[in-house]
Structures are given as C-alpha cells and as structure tokens.
C-alpha cells in the first residue's frame, strides 16, 4: 500500500475532490514530521506512538577496518505500535510478499 491508496480512502470517506484529499494526507504527514523534528513525540490513540530517542555517544568500530571510532550523540525516531494494532497484526492474514 502507498500514499495513493490512503488518498483514495480519504476521498471516499469525506467526499472531497481527489486533489483536496491528497493535500489533506500530505498535511497530516507533514504535521507529524514537523512535531518530530521539534523533538516532540506524536501519539495516535489506537495506532501507536512515534517517539524521539536521544542516543548518547559511544565507542564503536568500523567493521571493515577494525578502526575504533566515536559514534556521535544522535536523535532517532522509533515507533511503538499500540496494543490494539499489535494484536490486529498478530492475528491477521499471512504476509503478502508483494
């Protein structure tokens, strides 16, 4: 599934023009991105939470050369699905390879 399918679903549900539905979907994802960029978490009830984790710097190794390097502090995005979504997925239909 891609964004086009989500746009189609929004178009069917609220009866706006397709172009308008595409703008709505883009605006939803851009709003989420903007909050995450600002370090804020985004909690979608029944779906899951997008969180920003602050990773502390640590020592690592270049696996190719064996050289020791510092892995700098960074922020990473994680997603924790809600219990409802986890259960829906767990008990769902087999994975479609396509």
């Amino acid at each position: 599934m891609t964004k086009a399918d989500i746009v189609e679903a929004v178009y069917r549900e609220i009866g706006v023009a397709k172009k308008e539905a595409a703008i709505i979907v883009d605006t939803v994802f851009e709003a989420i991105r903007a909050k995450l960029e600002g370090g804020e978490s985004v909690k979608i009830s029944r779906f899951g939470n997008f969180n920003i984790r602050n990773k502390v710097p640590r020592r690592g190794r270049n696996p190719k050369t064996g050289e020791e390097i510092e892995i700098t502090a960074r922020k990473v995005l994680t997603f924790k699905p809600s219990q409802i979504l986890r259960e829906r997925v767990r008990d769902g239909e087999p994975i479609d390879a396509s």
Binding site: I6, A9, V10, E13, I14, A21, V25, V28, R46
Partner: peptide
C-alpha cells in the same frame, strides 16, 4: 480524514 489515514 485523520482516522481514515491510520485505519487504512
């Protein structure tokens, strides 16, 4: 709209 996005 928002519910439809996440439901789909």
């Amino acid at each position: 709209a928002v519910n439809t996005v996440f439901d789909s």
